[in-house]
Simulated assay, not measured.
Amino acid sequence: MHRMERHVSHTNKRVGTTQVARSYVSRWLALLAALCMLAPLGGCGFFTSDTKDTPSPVQSASTGPVSIVATLNQWGSLAERIGGDDVKVTSILSSTNVDAHDFEPTSKDLNQLSKANVVLVNGAGYDNWATKWIPSNASTISAAETVGAIDGDNPHLWFSNEARSSVARELFDTLCRLRPKDKSNFEKNYDAWKTSEKKLENTMKTFRKEHSDLTYAATETIAAYLMSDMGFKDETPKGYLQAVQNDSEPAPSDLKSFQTLLKDREVKLLVINPQQESSTTDQIVDAASTGSDPIPVLKVTEQMPQDQKDLTGWISSLVKQTNDLINSEEDAE
């Protein structure tokens, strides 16, 4: 990972007398000493953004558990899997009752970030609120950067097998660098995680083989990566999808196209985000539910539900739900 570092340039000036030079140096030494007393980070380090309300120092990663702060609980759970007993993970967003797009960190959240040895963010514009508070001497892992995603791309990267694997590898490499003496523990944890993720991959592969012509529509793009990994084709009307991506209300004609798509049973599954329900999504769900042959509805939240303790386990449960819904839909045909 590459990290921007703050560089301070110094200008040397020639003075006319030895006395003036000594006075000049003394003043700067006094100022430097004062700054070090006020600096929030050990070794006179500074935050990457300017702030006067500075939190407490970052603890060394050489002793005690490595402190990891994740912006999202799904990524935090992955950090716990890789780090095991050698890490202490704090997840800032950990409730399905919170809208991640409108989230504002509290002073407690910022204080937790200030003490992190490792900060794990999603990136791709999803959690920009965190980046300006990352300590300058903390290691930063961005899920988006591991797969080349940028602002404007679908930010729901935790639903992607590629992103999960890339972040897990980055966590393993970072922890081994920070705590080489515990490398064998990290290797054991990483191998165990890869086994469970491989099992999930195989389950999705079997699902793709057993079902053909898989189609779905969604009220938003939250599960697009998951649906793609499972072999589904997105048939959401383009006009509606564009409106959602622009955070605007769909035009009446686009909503009607969506409703017609569902009433004519042109897709096998509808995906909704219960965290973003509205009168528009209610109309869409109603269209899927009408008639004697309703389209099954899969509810997918942005944050990992509290009854799920592990990212791979959560994705596995969604795959199982999807499989059950599709099987029941096909049995009814």
Score class of each variant (00 low, 15 high):
Asp173Tyr: 11
Asp173Thr: 13
Asp173Met: 13
Asp173Trp: 07
Thr174His: 10
Thr174Tyr: 02
Thr174Gln: 05
Thr174Glu: 13
Leu175Asp: 07
Leu175Trp: 06
Leu175Lys: 13
Cys176Lys: 12
Arg177Phe: 15
Arg177Ala: 08
Arg177Leu: 07
Leu178Phe: 06
Leu178Lys: 08
Leu178Trp: 07
Leu178Asn: 10
Leu178Tyr: 06
Arg179Tyr: 08
Pro180Met: 12
Pro180Val: 12
Pro180Glu: 12
Lys181Gln: 11
Asp182Lys: 03
Asp182Gly: 11
Asp182Trp: 01
Asp182Glu: 15
Lys183Gln: 14
Lys183His: 05
Lys183Ile: 03
Ser184Cys: 02
Asn185Ser: 15
Asn185Ala: 01
Asn185Phe: 05
Asn185Gln: 02
Asn185Asp: 07
Phe186Tyr: 14
Phe186Gln: 04
Phe186Cys: 09
Phe186Ser: 08
Glu187Trp: 05
Lys188Leu: 11
Lys188Gly: 08
Asn189Leu: 14
Tyr190Pro: 04
Asp191Gly: 09
Asp191Ala: 11
Ala192Val: 01
Ala192Phe: 03
Ala192Leu: 04
Ala192Lys: 14
Trp193Cys: 13
Trp193Ser: 12
Lys194Asp: 04
Lys194Phe: 12
Thr195Cys: 01
Thr195Ile: 13
Thr195Met: 11
Thr195Pro: 04
Ser196Asn: 05
Ser196Val: 14
Ser196Lys: 13
Glu197Thr: 11
Glu197Met: 06
Glu197Arg: 01
Glu197Ala: 14
Glu197His: 02
Lys198Asp: 11
Lys198Leu: 14
Lys199Asn: 14
Lys199Tyr: 04
Leu200Thr: 02
Leu200Pro: 07
Leu200Gly: 09
Glu201Gln: 15
Glu201His: 12
Glu201Met: 14
Asn202Arg: 03
Thr203Asp: 07
Thr203Phe: 06
Thr203Gln: 12
Thr203Ala: 08
Thr203Gly: 00
Met204Lys: 05
Met204Ala: 03
Met204Val: 09
Met204Ile: 05
Met204Phe: 05
Lys205Val: 00
Lys205Tyr: 06
Lys205Cys: 04
Lys205Thr: 15
Thr206Ile: 00
Thr206Val: 10
Phe207Trp: 03
Phe207His: 05
Arg208Trp: 00
Arg208Gln: 07
Arg208Pro: 02
Arg208Phe: 00
Lys209Leu: 05
Glu210Arg: 05
Glu210Leu: 09
His211Ser: 00
His211Gln: 02
His211Met: 01
His211Ile: 03
His211Pro: 00
His211Lys: 09
Ser212Thr: 13
Ser212Val: 02
Asp213His: 03
